[in-house]
Design a binder for these strands. Sequence first.
RNA 1: GCGCCAGUAGCUCAAUUGGAUAGAGCAACAGCCUUCUAAGCUGUAGGUUAAUGGUUCGAGUCCAUUCUGGCGUACCA
Length: 542
Amino acid sequence: MKQYLKDLFKKSSDKLEYLKDANLVFTVPNIGSHGDFSTNVAMTLTKQLKRNPREIASEIVENLEADKNVISSIEIAGPGFINFSFTPQFTAQIIKNILAEKRDFGKSGKYKGKKALVEFVSANPTGPLTVGHGRNAVVGDTLANMYEWIGYDVDREYYFNNAGRQMRILGESVKLRYLELLGGTVDFPDTHYQGEYIVDIAKKLHTENGDSLRDEDAEGKFKETAEAEIFADIKKTLKNINIEFDSFYNERDLYNNGDIENVLKTFKEKDLVYEKEGATWFKLTELNNDQDKVIIKASGEPTYRLPDIAYHRTKYERGYDIIVDLFGSDHIATYPDVLAGITALGYNPDLVKVIIYQFVTLLANGEVVKMSTRKANFITLDELAEEVGSDVVRYFFNMRSVSSHLNFDIELAKKHSEENPVFYLQYAHARISSIMNMTEENKLNLSVDNLELLNTDEEQNLIKKLHSFGEEMLIAGENAETHKISHYLEELAGLFHKFYTQCRIIGTEKKLAEARIALAVASQIVIKNGLNILGVTAPEKM
RNA sequence: GCGCCAGUAGCUCAAUUGGAUAGAGCAACAGCCUUCUAAGCUGUAGGUUAAUGGUUCGAGUCCAUUCUGGCGUACCA
């Protein structure tokens, strides 16, 4: 419909010069009486033309050659909006499109042939995923789904580091617990991992090896077993909420294959590093950042910046058109360094899309719980999923804009889980399945022959909402705003429930009933498509 | 101190990216099931968009200052 309006304006730009390079924007007004689509073009032209916006608007309207079978009215309103309303005959076509395209309805070919990499979770294997990681995991996977929906070929990647200090402490923690099992009294420092899962891993090692590991190095078997066990657990947790990665990228590979060495060499050649106090510094001030930072410590070990830059270079070399990084606000200071690094290497930093989400505040018994993996006062993602189910977890984390803090009240999630909006959507979907069963029994069949009979407000509003699905998903995808999906679906479900209440099918005249079946089925298709993007199931029965 | 993100109804959040009368869900109150699922629908009430000033046809949205909260500000990741 938007395209129709654009073409209409283009045609009349022969007569009205100023429309040629005017910025034409059509929006759906939030008040029904303002029509189906609206444009503010007359207002944007006031300055250039130095004329009253309403005057300009009426001149534009006089020169539009609209088809009466398509557009039922054009009105000028308010300070100079031009409002358009479409005829029921025209909107009826939308239902046919949905029924024909089914699970593909609303997909955009706009980014077809492009490749996207979404890197998310990327938690080091030091413990189970917590509710905090949950936001990252769910939003990341949903972003990936959205990019696929608008045409990208998407890879999901998990980046991790199994070297480093925290992993060393993890190995030591397991070894200490193991020694405890052998009967020794062990001083367990509070800098070490306190969680019960550490004891479990130690028990496993004890069962399998007896006391033969007494003199084993903490960095050896202890650390390796811990990593393997924890990673297996993480993957299981992710699978529980419907997430699977295409690849796991180990930071160590960047050392082994010479990439880190290579990046460093390039920086040296470009005279972007210097030595000071035994460390190697990266001249970030020359790259427009605030201060120079260390990339190789006095100990000879690189800081995280260097491997991060090398890692991002591999993303470019693997040929992605868009590179999405998702992380929490605690990492906000790190990405400008990485972007500066890859820019210095000659890559276009605009391909990288950094998405930062605000932290989840966990409330238990009305009080804020500060979570820490090391201190083991966390609630795991598994426990949460067990408690409220995968659908609720996924929906909940996708409900809010990533830029706002998210309060997660455990009691509320349990207690009100039946009032969660996700059920509102699923209920609409299930209701339609139920209608289909009933209509079959009543020997009513879907028909698209008399769709113009769908002329009540409830029917027309529903149809128009269905029509906007593709565009709203495209906007959501381009802006990486997963909360727009659930927002759209809640509105759609609301319109469907109103339609359901007002427009009965069984007991109505046959032609109208069969047209309504078409609308109900079309609604179900769109709800299901949307739920699929969210990774939430669409039940036939509830 | 400096930097980033936020502050919208009692609570949790939206607001088509600068548009028309700021909207939903919970919670509260009043209605609607012998008819396709009441996990639903209808109605009532709830607001100086943290504050002040500015930019313009037009500001919750942009700019400045202030207040409050979160996160950073490492030779941790």
